[in-house]
Design a protein around this nucleic acid. Structure first.
Lengths: 133, 133
DNA sequence: TTGGGTGCAAACTATTTGCATTCGA
DNA sequence: TCGAATGCAAATAGTTTGCACCCAA
């Protein structure tokens, strides 16, 4: 994704495209991946200009609330951000910590109970935990 | 659940029944609930003898590894321990933080991809996130 | 008795926050 | 210009750890 596309992506999501946000987004959307804030901080600062820790945290919080990325809460120790913003689920290897995607259209969840009148579903997450034999 | 049953439960799970572990287990299995370590620490110490913070954390880690309770990673800030040890799933209200169970036999997950030969499924977790209207 | 269990406090680490500075529009 | 964004460092909070003491078997 080139820079102008990244800028457009941010604007479409109602996010002011600052230098730091563009750099972080460009890195995230190189490919679909699962990254921690610290990893993002380290990788982004390898190339390009410097981005501070606080800005990475602020930015990832913003991206999440704007629907650009999804938080994946699987690891006790840190939040992972998923740059695959299509609907999908996860397979988590508890031995290796490896996290991979399952395309959504392969999986169906049936039999959910009726919800209370005053709530709506905002997301359905399926996590398959696997371990090595 | 009375004390002798708790002791039996621990022994069945290959856990040495110490005073602290018995107290923590007795509290957890009063009823099915979702509790943080700090909550467990506070509640257990309301009644009965004193249990230290480190022991609560150690004990919950042990109970988890022995399959007595399940960790629920939904809240960014803390781990919840689920004392419902039947297979089931969760509904999480992102507005209130309320976490409730869905009986497993109501829900079916279909269409999972083939796994690599060298892994096995150790758990399937479905989380329905809801928000207030 | 004796190795595992416990308690305390200090250490650790991901994340958040206060505030002064800088930047985008 | 000027409010929003950033950077830095300090603060926060859940969890882990080191180590001396204690207890279950």
């Amino acid at each position: 994704m080139e820079r102008s596309e990244v800028v457009k992506l941010l604007q479409n999501h109602d996010i002011t495209p600052t230098r730091q946000r563009i750099e972080i987004a460009a890195f995230l959307f190189q490919r679909e991946q699962h990254l921690s804030a610290e990893k993002i901080l380290a990788e982004v600062n390898l190339s390009s200009h410097r981005v501070s820790r606080a800005t990475v945290y602020n930015t990832m919080g913003l991206f999440t609330s704007k629907g650009l990325v999804r938080e994946v809460l699987i690891d006790r120790d840190r939040v992972f951000y998923d740059s695959n913003n299509t609907q999908h689920h996860h397979i988590y290897n508890v031995d290796t910590g490896e996290l991979s995607d399952i395309e959504n259209d392969r999986v169906s969840v049936a039999g959910l109970p009726e919800l209370s009148d005053n709530v709506q579903i905002v997301g359905t997450e399926v996590i398959i935990k696997v371990s090595n034999l």
